[in-house]
Amino acid sequence: MKELLQIGLMIGGWSLVALCIASFWIPKVLCWREKLAGLTPLMRELWWTYSIYVWISHAFFAVLALSFRDWLMGGSGSAMAMCSFMLLWWAVRLWLQFFGFDLREVEGTLHNRIAKQLLTLLFMGLVVLYASLLCWNAGWLERGFLP
Protein backbone atom coordinates (compact mmCIF):
# COMPACT_ATOMS: atom_id res chain seq x y z
CA MET A 1 0.00 0.00 0.00
CA LYS A 2 2.85 2.36 0.88
CA GLU A 3 4.39 1.94 -2.57
CA LEU A 4 1.01 2.52 -4.18
CA LEU A 5 0.54 5.77 -2.26
CA GLN A 6 4.07 6.88 -3.15
CA ILE A 7 3.34 6.29 -6.83
CA GLY A 8 0.00 8.07 -6.37
CA LEU A 9 1.76 11.08 -4.88
CA MET A 10 4.23 11.16 -7.74
CA ILE A 11 1.44 11.02 -10.34
CA GLY A 12 -0.64 13.55 -8.36
CA GLY A 13 2.33 15.89 -8.03
CA TRP A 14 3.16 15.81 -11.74
CA SER A 15 -0.53 16.20 -12.60
CA LEU A 16 -0.57 19.35 -10.50
CA VAL A 17 2.52 20.59 -12.35
CA ALA A 18 0.63 19.95 -15.60
CA LEU A 19 -2.41 21.79 -14.18
CA CYS A 20 -0.21 24.77 -13.23
CA ILE A 21 1.27 24.90 -16.74
CA ALA A 22 -2.14 24.41 -18.41
CA SER A 23 -3.57 27.20 -16.24
CA PHE A 24 -1.68 29.73 -18.37
CA TRP A 25 -4.05 28.87 -21.25
CA ILE A 26 -7.26 29.22 -19.22
CA PRO A 27 -7.49 33.04 -19.57
CA LYS A 28 -7.14 32.69 -23.35
CA VAL A 29 -9.54 29.76 -23.73
CA LEU A 30 -12.22 31.36 -21.56
CA CYS A 31 -11.55 34.86 -23.03
CA TRP A 32 -10.99 36.40 -19.58
CA ARG A 33 -9.53 39.63 -20.93
CA GLU A 34 -12.63 40.42 -22.99
CA LYS A 35 -15.04 39.24 -20.32
CA LEU A 36 -13.31 41.23 -17.59
CA ALA A 37 -13.23 44.41 -19.68
CA GLY A 38 -16.64 45.44 -18.35
CA LEU A 39 -15.58 45.26 -14.71
CA THR A 40 -14.30 48.19 -12.64
CA PRO A 41 -10.47 48.37 -12.29
CA LEU A 42 -10.63 47.25 -8.66
CA MET A 43 -12.74 44.18 -9.46
CA ARG A 44 -10.33 43.29 -12.28
CA GLU A 45 -7.36 43.68 -9.95
CA LEU A 46 -9.04 41.55 -7.28
CA TRP A 47 -9.82 38.94 -9.93
CA TRP A 48 -6.20 38.60 -11.04
CA THR A 49 -4.90 38.72 -7.46
CA TYR A 50 -7.20 35.88 -6.35
CA SER A 51 -6.40 33.86 -9.47
CA ILE A 52 -2.65 34.17 -8.97
CA TYR A 53 -2.89 33.18 -5.29
CA VAL A 54 -4.96 30.10 -6.16
CA TRP A 55 -2.32 29.22 -8.80
CA ILE A 56 0.45 29.64 -6.18
CA SER A 57 -1.45 27.27 -3.85
CA HIS A 58 -1.63 24.63 -6.57
CA ALA A 59 2.10 25.02 -7.21
CA PHE A 60 2.76 24.60 -3.47
CA PHE A 61 0.61 21.43 -3.38
CA ALA A 62 2.70 20.09 -6.29
CA VAL A 63 5.93 20.81 -4.40
CA LEU A 64 4.53 19.04 -1.32
CA ALA A 65 3.50 15.96 -3.31
CA LEU A 66 6.80 15.69 -5.19
CA SER A 67 9.36 16.75 -2.60
CA PHE A 68 7.81 15.90 0.78
CA ARG A 69 6.30 12.46 0.18
CA ASP A 70 7.77 10.95 3.33
CA TRP A 71 6.45 13.78 5.47
CA LEU A 72 2.97 13.57 3.90
CA MET A 73 2.94 9.84 4.72
CA GLY A 74 4.65 10.16 8.10
CA GLY A 75 1.52 9.83 10.22
CA SER A 76 2.13 13.06 12.14
CA GLY A 77 -0.69 15.37 13.20
CA SER A 78 0.51 18.07 10.82
CA ALA A 79 0.59 15.61 7.89
CA MET A 80 -3.00 14.58 8.70
CA ALA A 81 -4.05 18.22 8.93
CA MET A 82 -2.45 19.02 5.57
CA CYS A 83 -3.98 15.95 3.89
CA SER A 84 -7.41 16.87 5.31
CA PHE A 85 -7.06 20.42 4.02
CA MET A 86 -6.07 19.27 0.53
CA LEU A 87 -8.83 16.62 0.53
CA LEU A 88 -11.38 19.31 1.37
CA TRP A 89 -9.89 21.66 -1.25
CA TRP A 90 -10.17 19.12 -4.10
CA ALA A 91 -13.48 17.63 -2.93
CA VAL A 92 -15.08 21.09 -3.09
CA ARG A 93 -13.48 21.65 -6.51
CA LEU A 94 -14.88 18.32 -7.72
CA TRP A 95 -18.33 19.20 -6.41
CA LEU A 96 -18.11 22.57 -8.21
CA GLN A 97 -17.14 20.79 -11.42
CA PHE A 98 -20.40 18.83 -11.39
CA PHE A 99 -22.86 21.11 -9.60
CA GLY A 100 -21.30 24.57 -9.24
CA PHE A 101 -20.05 25.94 -12.55
CA ASP A 102 -22.38 26.81 -15.39
CA LEU A 103 -20.22 25.67 -18.31
CA ARG A 104 -22.80 26.32 -21.03
CA GLU A 105 -21.00 29.42 -22.26
CA VAL A 106 -17.77 27.50 -22.90
CA GLU A 107 -17.49 26.50 -26.54
CA GLY A 108 -18.09 22.78 -27.03
CA THR A 109 -15.02 22.19 -29.18
CA LEU A 110 -13.20 18.85 -29.04
CA HIS A 111 -10.26 20.43 -27.18
CA ASN A 112 -12.53 21.98 -24.57
CA ARG A 113 -14.45 18.74 -24.06
CA ILE A 114 -11.22 16.75 -23.62
CA ALA A 115 -9.85 19.39 -21.22
CA LYS A 116 -13.05 19.26 -19.16
CA GLN A 117 -12.95 15.45 -18.88
CA LEU A 118 -9.24 15.50 -18.00
CA LEU A 119 -9.84 18.11 -15.30
CA THR A 120 -12.72 16.08 -13.84
CA LEU A 121 -10.51 12.97 -13.81
CA LEU A 122 -7.70 14.93 -12.14
CA PHE A 123 -9.99 16.25 -9.39
CA MET A 124 -11.39 12.75 -8.79
CA GLY A 125 -7.88 11.30 -8.63
CA LEU A 126 -6.73 13.96 -6.18
CA VAL A 127 -9.75 13.38 -3.93
CA VAL A 128 -9.04 9.63 -3.88
CA LEU A 129 -5.31 10.24 -3.30
CA TYR A 130 -5.71 12.62 -0.36
CA ALA A 131 -8.53 10.54 1.18
CA SER A 132 -6.24 7.49 0.98
CA LEU A 133 -3.35 9.45 2.47
CA LEU A 134 -5.57 10.62 5.32
CA CYS A 135 -6.60 7.00 6.01
CA TRP A 136 -2.94 5.93 5.80
CA ASN A 137 -1.84 8.61 8.26
CA ALA A 138 -4.68 7.65 10.59
CA GLY A 139 -3.33 4.09 10.50
CA TRP A 140 -6.48 2.56 8.99
CA LEU A 141 -4.85 1.32 5.79
CA GLU A 142 -1.71 0.09 7.54
CA ARG A 143 -3.77 -2.13 9.80
CA GLY A 144 -5.62 -3.50 6.81
CA PHE A 145 -9.10 -2.25 7.59
CA LEU A 146 -11.25 0.81 7.35
CA PRO A 147 -13.58 1.81 10.19
Binding site: L30, W32, K35, L36, G38, L39, T40, L42, M43, L46, W47, Y50, S51, Y53, V54, S57, W89, L96, G100, F101, D102, L103, E105, V106
Partner: peptide, 20 residues
Protein backbone atom coordinates in the same frame (compact mmCIF):
# COMPACT_ATOMS: atom_id res chain seq x y z
CA UNK B 1 -20.06 45.24 -9.77
CA UNK B 2 -20.31 41.67 -11.02
CA UNK B 3 -24.02 41.85 -11.90
CA UNK B 4 -23.38 42.85 -15.52
CA UNK B 5 -20.66 40.30 -16.15
CA UNK B 6 -21.08 36.80 -17.59
CA UNK B 7 -22.11 33.94 -15.31
CA UNK B 8 -18.72 32.22 -15.65
CA UNK B 9 -16.83 35.39 -14.63
CA UNK B 10 -19.03 35.77 -11.54
CA UNK B 11 -18.69 32.13 -10.56
CA UNK B 12 -14.91 32.00 -10.98
CA UNK B 13 -14.54 35.21 -8.99
CA UNK B 14 -16.56 33.85 -6.06
CA UNK B 15 -14.83 30.44 -6.20
CA UNK B 16 -11.35 31.99 -6.12
CA UNK B 17 -12.45 34.31 -3.34
CA UNK B 18 -13.81 31.36 -1.32
CA UNK B 19 -10.62 29.34 -1.80
CA UNK B 20 -8.45 32.24 -0.63
Amino acid sequence: NLAGSEVMVRQIFYVHCAYI
